[in-house]
Structures are given as structure tokens and as C-alpha cells.
Write a protein that binds this DNA or RNA. Structure first.
Lengths: 175, 175
DNA sequence: AATATACGTCAACATCTATGACGTATTCAT
DNA sequence: ATGAATACGTCATAGATGTTGACGTATATT
């Protein structure tokens, strides 16, 4: 927060010039645009949208997740989630079961049908990432992760370590 | 496209495991979510949305751009763009002038008012990038760019060089 | 003169998200 | 036990963003 984190090398390092920052902005825009295009296409055939994909994805990743945690991840209102979620439950992609410790909770899990769809949707995105990672190389992937974590407002704990661990020079450096 | 680009090191390099690909997917989701949050907030006060921001941004970056090129960048329909654009013209953020060589064109430029808003909106995103870049370091930034370009379906020429240029080992490598 | 391009518009519609208000079931703290 | 907080759902209203299809005008191109 304070002066400690104001790490200044020169006055303005090369990679922090206006032009480079804008390049980052644009790359992120283009990448996200194309990253979502394929799944969106598949989903529209099923009468679903990107919001459904996000829910299916994160429920798949966190089986038994409670609604409020899902809301925290997605950062949308419960009314918005509710509509999407009820469609997914009605169409048999997601199951709700009551929490055993706290019976107010409706814990969410993918059904077989849901897992199938999740796999199909995510496969397209995994392929895209695999291609990009392969082209860029392992070292670039590490850098990619570090920057993305820095862009996130409040990175989940499991990501924060990406910033500190495996820092290359890292021996007797300025910290 | 062919066997040439199928660069395989081992059977499945460490950074191409399912888990790593999913981590990439999630990082991209979180980063984009937070990357757009601040500008969205500012815009809503003006009765504008994210789509207006995108138009203002790319017109600012490409003064005198024609509508069809803007459509190619945004990958939306002209009807969608039209609604957004006409608001921006009406509200005095963007000027249209006839092309001199081809008078069918309506070349787009930011007005002073538009430039002012663009600056305000983008400043938030630049700050976020500057922070992430600073934290991650110059080397990571280079990797970040390389991966993002690989995610883009059909990277503009000015980005494609990021993939080939400045490749670190790069001397007598396998190419 | 015929065709294609650049752009705009009207209409109808679907999706995603937001706010505000209200209700129920359950848990927790005093 | 009672009151407050939590987890969740729902109804209503609204706005932003995107789509397709059809049609029209001005201008370029061949």
C-alpha cells in the first residue's frame, strides 16, 4: 500500500510506456473476444448463453458449491443468477441438493448431462489455450499467469502464490 | 496447420496439463471481469455502456477509421454498432466526416469531449495494467503478450511479430 | 448500364444484467 | 425462546447489448 510497493527502476521503465499499456488493453480485448466466440456459438444452438456457460463451468470446477459462493465468483446479482440457474436445473444440467450441515444451502452439482456439455464447451477453450501455450513456450506461460493475476482485483489465495513463487532472479534480490 | 506446427517435446509437457489449461481459462475470466468493472461503473453514470467504451476506444486509437473497419475489429453487426454510434454522435463524443477519396465513407474521429471521456475511461485500465506489469516484471510482460497473441483467432499483423521476434534462446533452435 | 460497396434505418426479438421489494427456511447469538 | 442474520428464491421493472431480416441511398467499379 505505501512507499514499499512503489518499486521504481528508472523514472518510467520501457514496458510501462503508454503505448505498451494500450497494447495490453487491446490484446486482452481481442483474446477475450475470440476466447468466447466458439462456446457462444455452440450454446446458441441449445437456447443457452454465455452466462449459462459460466455457471456450468464453475459448478463443474467446484462440485457442491453453494449459491452464494457462486455469486461471489461471478459478481452478478442473485436475481440474474437465479434465472440462469433455474433454466439449467429445469433442463437437467445441474442438480441441487440440500446442505447437510446447513440445510438452508442448495449445493450445486453437474448431472451427467451437465458434465457432458461442460466438457464439450470447455474443450474448445482448452484447445485454444493449448495452442497458445505451445506457441509461446513454458516461460511465457509463467509470465502470462503472473500478469493476469496482477490484473485481478482480489486474487483467490491459490493464485496469489503465482506472484511470489518461482520468481526467477529471486536470490539476494531487493526484497 | 500441418505437422510442422505440432511441436511436441515430451508426450504432454507439464504446462499443457488439463489443470493448467483450466487455470488459464479461469485467470482470463477473472482478469477480464475486473478489467471492465471500473469503466463500466463510470459509464453507467453517463447512460452509456461497455459497447460505447469500445467504440470510443478504437476510434481514439484509429482517428478517421471507417465504419466497416470498426465492425471488423468489434465483430458485431452494423445494426448493433449503429445504435451505439448514433448515440455517441448525438451526444457529441464522436464526429463523422465524409471520406475525400471515397465519399461513401463516414470517417470517425473523437471530439474534444470524446477524447476527454476516452482518457478518463482508459486511465483506469492503464493503471491496472501498469500495476500488473510492474508486479510481474518485464520478462513476464513479454510472455503475457506472446500467449495472448496465440489466443487471438487472426492476430493483426502488428501483433504477429510478437510471436517470432525476441524469442529468447532463438539461436540455432529447432526452426 | 449493371453490380458491388459503404452506410443507414426500421422492426422484432433474445440475452444478460440491474434494482427494489418481499417471503421462507434455517442458523446463530443473546 | 426470541430476535437478528444468513441462504435462497421470486415477482416486477428496466436498460444495455446483441441478433436477423428487409429495405433504401449514395457512390464506386467494371
Amino acid at each position: 500500500m505505501g512507499a514499499m510497493s512503489d518499486v521504481k527502476f528508472g523514472a518510467n521503465p520501457l514496458f510501462l510506456r503508454e503505448e505498451d499499456l494500450r497494447q495490453g488493453i487491446e490484446l486482452l480485448f481481442y483474446a477475450y473476444r475470440d476466447f468466447t466466440a466458439e462456446p457462444d456459438q455452440m450454446l446458441s444452438g441449445l437456447g443457452l448463453g454465455r452466462a449459462h456457460h459460466r455457471v456450468i463451468y464453475f459448478v463443474g470446477r467446484n462440485p457442491g458449491i453453494m449459491v452464494s459462493d457462486l455469486l461471489t465468483i461471478l459478481k452478478i446479482t442473485k436475481q440474474s443468477l437465479s434465472r440462469v440457474l433455474s433454466v439449467l436445473v429445469t433442463e437437467g444440467y445441474i442438480e441441487q441438493r440440500q446442505g447437510s450441515r446447513d440445510r438452508r444451502q442448495r449445493l450445486l452439482t453437474l448431472t451427467d448431462r451437465g458434465r457432458e456439455l461442460e466438457e464439450k464447451l470447455t474443450e474448445s477453450q482448452r484447445r485454444r489455450f493449448a495452442k497458445a501455450y505451445r506457441l509461446a513456450g513454458a516461460e511465457a506461460v509463467e509470465g502470462f499467469r503472473r500478469v493476469l493475476v496482477g490484473l485481478i482485483e482480489d486474487p483467490p489465495a491459490e493464485y496469489r502464490q503465482l506472484l511470489t513463487a518461482e520468481r526467477r532472479p529471486a536470490r539476494g534480490s531487493r526484497f
